[in-house]
Design a protein around this nucleic acid. Structure first.
Lengths: 196, 196
DNA sequence: CTCATCATGTAAGGAGTTACATGATTGG
DNA sequence: CCAATCATGTAACTCCTTACATGATGAG
């Protein structure tokens, strides 16, 4: 149910089309929340039906069209309410830790491949998080700049600091996963030496 | 799709009924994977239809019944193949970090409440992970003991060490989340002082 | 004219949640 | 006899994924 709040968070900065939102979701915002176009378009329609957003249809060339979505007062209210309310945590469900708990059932080579893939996966994520952090510091993220323009001067620091805070948390998590998998590799080595 | 592998992992230790599996999912194994009964019963039926498990019906008292599930050779093969194959990572989707990135939109009190709730949530998880770790060390986890009984002596160390490894990773993650939220609380304090 | 990009969607299905629904057995 | 626990499910719904489907515009 957080998809609509992710959409509202972006749309509150300024009206955008489904297509633009989808681009955001595969780039910057996609680091904290991902959604494919096939999920975005129907959700926007539902939100429009519920009065959280309003559409503005624009023509593009002769026959092309583009539908911009604006956040309504009700949408703004819904976002603020969500921000101020309790967050529900999903149940724990992690394929990597499930597999790790039974890793003696895998060949040592497969166990190593799994851990190397885990490291590669989180190194990729880490690179994106760190890239985002340097964009924040350099004020070179276009979304953030646009957001700051529509933010009162005395709230700009908070906007930047909380964005940093979120991405630092993500980077820390990625580093933790990498360190864990490295310890796992050492463990596989130790156990397969012991067995031989 | 990992649910069935979680079920196979448990059933490989010994045959169990849907009810017993559901108990496991709300206790020990539930730390790495959770599933409600309404998902377990249908999945077991599907797995039986695909030949991964076999049923053994038992009577309980006069009219009661109990259906035990055994892993078949095909089920064992499927589990081993899953363990040796690549793992697919889900896209990132984290309501807590989404909210953190826009925390300036929340009242300072609500921001603090969110972070305190985050700490409380992960402290609860951490306590469970640490409890599990001490059960592993004391060999007082009944599932693990049962698993070790059906494990050749030379693989017992690996079974224990990988289980430790998985839970240490989970505990580290919980500690990271707690540390992150504490830094968030300090940030809220700093920013609300600056504003006043 | 062709290709990348802009633009909008539908359909089918898997995974997970919440609520509903029923009944037997065992221990106190 | 009553409550806790054992035991098995169905139904409706949301969320998400993957694949399918179409067409316009602008740059080279």
């Amino acid at each position: 149910m957080s998809l609509r709040y992710a959409l509202l968070a972006i749309l509150r900065v300024g009206p955008q089309s489904g297509y633009e939102l989808q681009k955001q979701f595969s780039l910057s915002v996609g680091h904290v929340w991902h959604a494919p176009d096939s999920q975005i378009y129907p959700e926007l329609r539902k939100m429009a039906a519920e009065g959280l957003v309003e559409t503005e249809d624009q023509t593009r060339g002769e026959r092309g069209m583009r539908r911009l979505y604006h956040v309504t007062a009700a949408g703004d209210r819904a976002f603020i309410d969500w921000m101020n309310g309790p967050l529900d945590y999903q149940r724990f469900r992690d394929p990597a830790h499930l597999r790790a708990a039974y890793l003696e059932s895998a060949e040592p080579a497969a166990a190593r491949a799994f851990l190397h893939a885990h490291i590669a996966h989180w190194e990729g994520e880490l690179a994106q998080f760190e890239g985002e952090l340097s964009h924040i510091d350099a004020l070179s993220n276009p979304m953030l700049v646009r957001r700051l323009e529509s933010t009162p001067a005395d709230e700009r620091e908070a906007t930047i600091e909380y964005k940093r805070f979120a991405y630092e948390g993500l980077a820390d998590r990625a580093r933790g996963e990498i360190a864990w998998a490295r310890r796992g590799l050492a463990l596989v080595d130790r156990l397969s030496e012991a067995a031989s």
